[in-house]
Each structure stands twice: as structure tokens, then as C-alpha cells.
Write a protein that binds this DNA or RNA. Sequence first.
DNA 1: GATGAAACGGATGTCAC
DNA 2: GTGACATCCGTTTCATC
Lengths: 153, 153
Amino acid sequence: MPVRIDDMDRRILSALQQDASRSMDDIARIVGSSKTPVWNRIRKLREAGVISQHTVRLDAEALGFEACFFVLIRTSEHDAQWQARFLEALRARPEVQEAHRLAGDIDYILKVRVRNARAYDVFYQALISEVKIHNVTALLSMEELKSTTMLPL
Amino acid sequence: MPVRIDDMDRRILSALQQDASRSMDDIARIVGSSKTPVWNRIRKLREAGVISQHTVRLDAEALGFEACFFVLIRTSEHDAQWQARFLEALRARPEVQEAHRLAGDIDYILKVRVRNARAYDVFYQALISEVKIHNVTALLSMEELKSTTMLPL
DNA sequence: GATGAAACGGATGTCAC
DNA sequence: GTGACATCCGTTTCATC
């Protein structure tokens, strides 16, 4: 079900993405409306799930998460049961920040954020002991050039 | 410079990551402290850059961003000038949500979020016309199994 | 030096128009 | 969408450990 979004909604979402700590009055001024209608729109966007979470972004390196890997996975197992177990394993592991099922000869890609290379190996050993995986390639990030969750509305 | 973080800070950050819309009183109760010290710690964590942004996560699909690609890039150019131009191109393009410089034979990985496959092609053509790239592999996401920015503190 | 109680001012959520 | 209202919350001050 597609959510109907108009231009005012888009401007509100854009303002919230940039800085969600602003007051309703500030947002209203930025988008050219007033407090109450903006507040009602935000509530509806929340209820519709368009706004899924209100959160803070933390500096991973400052908190000691100094290693980031992109993990390319090929599997020989393609049945539903294997997939369910794999999915469960990913969801249970907090070091997996992203997981996508892919089209093409690589089946999955993960983004894994850990304290150091040793912690990645612990994760890797645990994962392959839980589910059968045919082939794994780990790409080590040397430098995060850009990182944003913002959508260009 | 490593930021000194104690256990109380970690609990506060964890609560904020989960839901940053909670009141100071709520957070204080969750972490087992009271309003003022929590407020002071959050202010310091902001100033230190540990909390880098206060934002909302939006549902990309609900907003019509239905295609997500991971782009593996190999380049033959490794001089500083090429790198600067490439970096500038990435920063300027809002569809690039992540960009990492890698160790190993693949030089860069991008995460690109666009409305559809055609929009990806427009992005791709624009990028290769701006900077010389030796080899590109695009991995198309069929399904986002997991996506979080939360760090396991 | 950090904590917790309390008071103040401003923001939020609700409603009538 | 506007303005007004009561309530709640963020922020500051201050006494205390």
C-alpha cells in the first residue's frame, strides 16, 4: 500500500531528517506552515510507518568500533528452512548492521561493524558454524568516505 | 583522541539509540539516575561528537525509493587528484548513502539508493562521465533483511 | 565534582473556530 | 490552518552528599 505524501509532508520529513531535535515551531517556520498542522502531519506519518524511528547517530570510532567489513556470501542452500535459519542468525547478531538478499551470483551482502579484526573473526566463525555457507568474501573498509541515512526527498 | 565513556554514558547512549524521542525523566528512570546528571552527560556527549546527529529513519520503500544497489569499484587511477575528484562526486550525490575505501583488489564500495533501475543508470552514467573508473560491478538488492545504525554498546 | 529536588519558562498536545 | 489553553518537559539554580 503506497502512502500518499504531498509536498508539505516531504518538506517536513526533510527537515526532520536533517535535525529531529528542532521544536514544532521551528519546523513549521522552515516548511512555511504552523505548529498544529505540522504536528498532525508528523503524527500521521508516524502512524503510517513512514517515520519508522526517532534516533541518534553515534560516532562508531569514538566508541571503539574501529573495524567495518562488507561480507559477500554465496550459498549452495536455497531452501526455505536454510533461509529462515540464516535470517534468524543475522537478526540475532547486533554486529550485523545491514543484510541484503541480492540478485545475481552473490546471494547476500552484510555490513558488519566490530571493535577490531579479531572480533570479526569471532563473528565469522560463529556464523559459519551456525549455517552452511558455500563461499565468503570479506571486504575490509579502510575509510568511511560517506555515511548517511538521509533520503533525497 | 579517545573519548572517556563510562557505563552510565553507555546506558544513556543505548536508550537514545533505541528511541531518542523519550523525555529526560524517562531516560533517567531507564538508566537509573535522575534528570540533571543525564542532561549534563548528553550535552557533553554531543559536544564531544559522540552523538553526531539527532534524526528520524524513514521507510525508503514507502517514499518510493524502491531500488538499492551495492556498487563495487576498481580504479586504475590512484593519485591524490583523482581521489579528491571521486570523493567530491560521491559527496555531491544524495543517492550515495555510503561510500567506503577498501583494502584489497576492490577499491571502493558504494551503497546507492534510488527510485528505480533507470534512476540507477542515470547515476552510473553521470558518475563514469565525471571520473575515470576501471571496473564496476553493481549488486542489486532484492530484499533488505536487516537495516540498523545501532551500535551494540 | 557529581547528584537530586525544585522552580521557571518554553514547548507540546488538544480543542474550538 | 489559526489561536488559545492546560499540561508536560527541558533547562537552570541551588542545597546536599
